[in-house]
Design a protein around this nucleic acid. Structure first.
Length: 257
DNA sequence: ATGTCGGAATTATTCCGA
């Protein structure tokens, strides 16, 4: 079973690129973030033609998350309870015995902005909600754009970025709370010493300068982690394909037994 | 170059968010 997460930065702009990737990588279940699209506009026919059913929690202009799946899934939650006014950022489904949750965590903008405090509060709500509805002894995958660099290895320049947005102790503590509850960062677990990024700014040639961040993760509970055979960041799909513009994020893909 | 994208408000230009 191939699972993936990908912030596509606008479904309207990215649909042909997403179709290209689905055909090449053949995932079984995918969490998508930043649809920037209302539910009524979702191109269900295009997804069905590619072999996928789409479940979405959309919003006009910003945010929005989806799960694409080859098999039917049961929707367990649309929106993070108590945080709905911070945008469409949470979608929880069950695929057979696997809980699959996709999140687009708040960016926070900068430390002086109201959104930074709201980001921390959103994470607290997420941890509380998941502890209510999940069991760390059962298989679950939490995937998405977390907008946090977990450690110095996950940023192109910890020296210049330490203490800034994505790099604060307060944010890292929020991520650690999810880990302490029972999630494992699948990429870091299988590649403990590799510096690899999942996001590069469009500006300034950041991709070619290797100035990126690892902020997109697949987190797994122990029973799900035991099934993981491989995990990679699909850096090739951060590049243009057949003249189609890429997202500023690369997909993260894991293969489970 | 505060360097690029995507989306929306407005009608080719500006703004916002990332």
């Amino acid at each position: 079973m191939r699972v993936a997460t990908w912030n596509i930065n606008g479904l309207n702009a990215r649909l042909p690129f997403v179709e290209h990737w689905l055909a090449a990588r053949q995932p079984d279940i995918v969490g998508l973030q930043e649809l920037k699209m209302v539910d009524d506009k979702i191109p269900h026919l295009a997804f069905e033609a590619a072999g996928y059913k789409a479940v979405t929690h959309g919003q006009k202009s910003w945010n929005g998350v989806a799960v694409l799946s080859r098999d039917e899934v049961e929707v367990l939650g649309r929106g993070l309870p108590g945080q709905e006014d911070f945008g469409a950022r949470f979608l929880h489904v069950r695929a057979r015995d696997l809980d699959f949750i996709t999140v687009y965590c708040p960016n926070g903008k900068h430390l002086g902005h109201d959104d930074y405090a709201r980001k921390l509060a959103w994470y607290d709500t997420l941890a509380e909600h998941l502890a209510d509805v999940l069991d760390p002894a059962r298989p679950a995958i939490l995937g998405g754009d977390f907008n946090i660099c977990p450690s110095p290895l996950d940023t192109w320049n910890e020296d210049s970025n330490a203490g800034d947005i994505f790099h604060t102790d307060e944010e890292r503590a929020r991520l650690r709370r999810l880990i302490d509850w029972g999630f494992t960062d699948v990429y870091r677990s299988l590649h403990p010493d590799t510096q690899a990024f999942s996001w590069w700014d469009y500006r300034g040639g950041a991709f070619h300068r290797k100035q990126g961040l690892r902020i997109d993760f697949l987190l797994a509970t122990e029973p799900a982690l035991q099934r993981v055979n491989a995990v990679e960041i699909d850096r090739d799909y951060r590049k243009k394909k057949d003249g189609l513009q890429a997202s500023d994020h690369a997909p993260v893909i894991a293969d489970l037994a």
